[in-house]
Amino acid sequence: MRNKDGSIILTKLNNEVWVHTTYTEMDGYLVSANGLIINSSKGIYLIDTTWNEPLANELLKMIKQTFHKQVKKAIITHHKIDRVGGVPALLKNKIPVESTSFISKSAKKEGYSKIAPTLDRSPVLKLGKTTLETYYPGEGHTSDNIVVWLPKYKLLFGDMIFALEQQNVGIIDEANMSAWPYTIQSLINKYPNAKIVVPGHKSWGDFSLLPHTIENLKDVDK
């Protein structure tokens, strides 16, 4: 399912979980970013908010048309624009936006305030029959990046993970290149039974994205 100009695509993974993919232009190229929509019995939960306000407003409209529900809450997985760009639109629609205190402080420095630091004390959310767990594995793409784990579906989402077709490390202006491989190894150790792995950009797949990410990082100057 996509909007008229193709800037937003919604892809169903199962009865409860969808991927929202949004596109923006950077240096003449269209760049995608993935997030999750969880259609639980307790309402719609959004993981990450798109690149900007217009895309976020369009996404909220598509969610309402598709699921006939409002978004109950949004979770942010790090402080950079592809995750937080739509925060103002959500707040204007009175949708709570939550994360860790680390991400909240980092986002505030970038001009995105009012992200509630609730995940420090409540990293696990019960969404009806679905449990959502958040976890900070260490520094990687950013110093504050977290992952989302849905144990019911053995689904892992994180923007420090590379798609199989990605053969470079992308934008690393805030990355900790020395720590990043160890961060991914911690994910391998913690989620050895992951069946669906959704990266922050490009195509999702299975557990193989995790060792691929480590391989992708090997030849980069630390």
Rank of each mutant, 00 (worst) to 15 (best):
M1F: 10
R2K: 15
G6N: 11
I8Q: 04
T11R: 15
N14C: 13
E16R: 06
V17H: 02
V17C: 12
V19P: 04
T24V: 07
S32A: 09
N34V: 11
I38T: 04
S40V: 01
S41F: 08
I44H: 05
L46W: 04
D48T: 15
N52D: 15
P54E: 11
P54N: 09
L55M: 10
L55K: 12
N57F: 08
N57L: 13
E58F: 04
L60R: 07
K61Q: 13
K61Y: 10
M62S: 01
Q65T: 12
H68T: 11
V71E: 08
V71K: 01
V71D: 04
K72L: 09
A74I: 01
A74L: 01
I75R: 04
I75A: 01
I76M: 07
I76C: 07
T77E: 05
T77N: 08
K80V: 15
K80E: 11
V84P: 05
V84Q: 03
V87H: 13
V87L: 13
V87G: 00
V87D: 11
P88E: 07
L90A: 02
L90G: 06
K94E: 14
I95T: 08
P96C: 08
V97P: 01
S113A: 09
S113H: 07
K114C: 08
A116F: 12
T118W: 14
D120A: 11
D120V: 09
P123M: 11
K126H: 12
G128S: 06
G128T: 10
T134D: 03
T134K: 04
P137G: 07
G140F: 06
H141F: 15
T142F: 07
D144W: 10
N145Y: 09
N145R: 08
I146T: 03
V148L: 03
L150D: 04
K152E: 05
K152P: 02
K154A: 14
L155D: 08
L156E: 03
F157A: 01
G158C: 05
G158L: 04
F162Q: 07
Q166P: 02
Q166T: 09
Q167P: 00
V169F: 02
V169N: 04
G170D: 02
I172H: 11
E174C: 13
N176L: 11
N176K: 14
M177P: 05
M177Y: 07
S178C: 09
W180H: 10
W180T: 13
W180N: 11
T183G: 01
S186A: 08
I188K: 00
I188F: 00
I188Q: 08
N189L: 10
K195V: 00
I196F: 03
V197K: 00
V197N: 00
V197P: 00
P199S: 06
H201T: 07
K202P: 02
K202L: 13
S203M: 10
D206Y: 04
F207M: 01
L210G: 03
T213E: 02
I214V: 09
K218F: 04
